[in-house]
């Protein structure tokens, strides 16, 4: 559990009222991760989502082949402080679509997504709020990927 005051510092939580913030704080932990630690893997159940407080995390996209020697991993994005990761926790079927690896020692807020989804079932306003910020975060990531693709396809 963390203090609701910690959550209040981040725009991500700005849609919540005091009671909602307190409930979410109760299912959130502040955790330190070391460089190269894996937060979650592609295709795992999305049972947690994170907000990066300090440090840096890379998202890797994994291309699986039948032959394990052909398996490839590419970095598809970097998460900066204040940003959300583990968005799949809000999107059915709640399976991670990327692998998150800590780039340098980092501090994150880890939300128990199973408990969060329970909270959301009881509070439709909270549910819509989380869904909206998750869509926004996904759209921003889509935009960043489009910019990358535009750069890759339009050499000077």
């Amino acid at each position: 559990m963390v203090s609701p005051e910690i959550l209040r510092r981040y725009p991500f939580y700005s849609f919540m009222d005091h009671d909602q913030l307190r409930e979410v704080a109760m299912i959130t932990d502040e955790i330190k991760y070391k460089k190269d630690q894996v937060l979650f893997n592609t295709d795992e159940k999305a049972d947690a989502c994170f907000l990066l407080m300090e440090g840096s995390v890379d998202l890797h996209y994994v291309v699986d082949e039948h032959d394990p020697s052909l398996r490839k991993e590419f970095i598809v994005g970097t998460i900066n402080p204040g940003e959300l990761l583990g968005i799949s926790a809000f999107v059915e079927p709640h399976i991670y679509t990327a692998t998150a690896i800590v780039v340098n020692d980092s501090r994150l807020l880890k939300m128990d997504a199973v408990a969060l989804r329970d909270l959301c079932r009881q509070d439709p306003g909270l549910n819509l709020g989380f869904q909206t910020v998750a869509v926004k975060a996904t759209m921003e990531r889509l935009h960043a990927t489009r910019v990358q693709l535009a750069a890759a396809t339009s050499p000077e």
């Binding site: 996209y61 291309v63 490839k72 590419f74 598809v76 968005i87 799949s88 809000f90 999107v91 059915e92 679509t97 439709p124 549910n127 819509l128 869904q131 909206t132 998750a134 869509v135 996904t138 759209m139 990531r141 889509l142 990927t145 489009r146 990358q148 693709l149 890759a152 396809t153």
Partner: peptide, 26 residues
Amino acid sequence: GYLMTQKAAQVIRDRLRDLRIESLAF
């Protein structure tokens, strides 16, 4: 609102996945 934004999230997630695959092809 939840049902519609959930649909939006799924569509955008799928589009993001397709775009990532396309980027990797490049």
